[in-house]
């Protein structure tokens, strides 16, 4: 996996004629983490969507090292499929030197989901589905992670697993950008605080 990075330069985000944030500049380099915080509706999710290229900023530029792995509100896993096959669907799309099923098996293991591998996604609980979404990010083997409220619905055990996964990812040279309203244990993280306009 090559090093990850994401950098915003003078980025202005406008939604429905309303400016959410203006002239935002930051850089999350290889092995670093950026944590975006701020009150509801301040544009945390929009920031992640801009970072993912799903939303165009009205001004400014975004630089990143591809490929990016993204988690948004929904895990985007096919509900009728067993968990491992649902993850495999996405893992096959992602470029990696390692085989897709190996990456999925490792990701399931990392989030303590191995015993749920044959269970259809629709039968998983909210927290389990969240872990499955994070496992999808992990299985992508992408250097740059973009996580929108990744800890929603996670219990204490899952939170520990998640924080450990982030630490491993950073150690391997990856970069993480997290938008969250929760307290996460991410050491030496760069805080990006959005304030209500």
């Amino acid at each position: 996996m090559p090093g990850g990075a994401i950098a915003f330069r003078d980025v202005t985000c406008e939604r429905g004629g309303r400016v959410l944030f203006e002239g935002l500049t930051f850089a999350v380099e290889q092995g670093q983490a950026g944590v975006v915080t701020g009150p509801n509706g301040v544009g945390k999710s929009s920031l992640i969507r801009i970072a993912a290229g799903l939303l165009q900023p009205v001004e400014g530029t975004v630089a990143y090292s591809p490929p990016r792995a993204l988690i948004t509100e929904d895990a985007a896993l096919d509900r009728e499929l067993p968990l491992d096959r649902a993850l495999l669907f996405w893992a096959r799309f992602d470029d990696s030197e390692r085989a897709a099923d190996e990456r999925v098996a490792d990701a399931l293991e990392a989030f303590d989901l191995t015993h749920l591998a044959p269970v259809p996604v629709r039968l998983l609980s909210t927290g389990q589905r969240r872990r499955a979404g994070l496992a999808r990010v992990l299985a992508a083997d992408s250097p740059t992670w973009l996580l929108d409220e990744p800890a929603n619905g996670l219990d204490a055990h899952a939170l520990t697993l998640f924080e450990a996964a982030i630490a491993r990812h950073r150690k391997a040279g990856g970069a993480v950008l997290i938008a969250t309203h929760q307290q996460l244990d991410v050491p030496r993280a760069q805080m990006i605080v959005l304030e209500a306009a």
């Binding site: 490929p67 929904d74 985007a76």
Partner: peptide, 14 residues
């Protein structure tokens, strides 16, 4: 669209 499948595909360059 609702479940973010289109977003995930777009991030992967589709």
């Amino acid at each position: 669209l609702e479940r973010g499948v289109v977003d995930q595909l777009a991030v992967r360059g589709a």
